[in-house]
């Protein structure tokens, strides 16, 4: 698929094939088009050309809310929790994914036992019980990222997109996120994530795709990628030398 913003070619003939059950990483220098790729997959942006097939069906031109309903959830690079709602309500909001479009929205209460129970389980998975009743916007970044993951899990995704899930987190928080993502994956959710943090990436990704200036320049296992000369060059050529 391709995407251009005015004169800027953000993505050029990028093709990506994520297999059910895998954990796939997308890496690349700043401005490579990674977030744009996510925005296209989950329906915020329309590709200029190309197709996206999710679960056997094309999702080009489908509303983001409908795509979510079909089992695709995501988090955001710049966190977008529902700030003034409690953490619990953030998760409950995710559980409503099938309810919103129907008339049931006028009937069902998010505070009914079944939803609260489900939400609490997810909250426990992320280990954020302590903050369940706190306004999500008041939490530190590390917890907000967890809230986003919890909310995304509530959508019951088949495919989970994580945009830089550990950026801004400390080592401990990063380790916790590694465990969480592994746990999520083991429960049968396919995970596609973007990350600059190599420790995180190499630790959990089964395969890595590398984007540079909107072009896919490499794809392979973590071992292959860390040795690939084009990748090293792309990173050395940018300010990302770490």
């Amino acid at each position: 698929m391709s995407k251009r913003f005015g004169g800027l070619q953000a993505l050029k003939d990028v093709s990506l094939d994520v297999e059910v059950g895998e954990i796939r990483a997308i890496i690349g220098p700043n401005g490579a088009g990674k977030t744009t790729l996510f925005n296209i997959i989950n329906g915020f942006l329309r590709p200029d050309s190309g197709t996206i097939v999710f679960d056997g069906k094309s999702i080009v031109g489908v509303r983001p809310s409908e795509i979510a309903k079909r089992g695709l959830a995501r988090t955001f690079q710049i966190v977008k929790v529902f700030s003034s709602l409690s953490v619990l309500e953030n998760v409950l909001a995710g559980l409503g994914v099938d309810i919103y479009p129907s008339l049931e929205a006028f009937q069902r209460s998010p505070f009914a036992k079944e939803y609260v129970e489900k939400a609490w389980k997810i909250i426990e998975t992320l280990g954020i019980e302590k903050y369940a009743f706190v306004a999500a916007g008041t939490l530190p970044l590390g917890l907000q990222r967890k809230v986003e993951v919890a909310r995304a899990l509530a959508v019951k995704p088949k495919l989970l997109l994580l945009d830089e899930p550990v950026s801004g987190l400390n080592d401990l928080e990063t380790q916790e996120m590694i465990d969480v993502v592994k746990k999520i994956n083991q429960s049968g959710v396919t995970v596609l994530f973007i990350e600059h943090d190599m420790h995180f990436t190499v630790n959990i990704a089964q395969r890595i795709t590398v984007l540079d200036y909107g072009v896919k320049i490499a794809e392979g296992t973590p071992e292959e990628i860390t040795k690939d000369s084009r990748v090293i060059e792309a990173y050395l050529g940018s300010e990302e030398v770490a």
Binding site: S65, F76, F82, P101, V155
Partner: peptide
């Protein structure tokens, strides 16, 4: 509530804005 707090995030959990 979701819509008010963040339109994109609301869409991402199935709320058609």
């Amino acid at each position: 509530d979701a819509l008010r707090e963040d339109e994109d995030a609301a869409e991402s959990v199935g709320v058609s804005s």
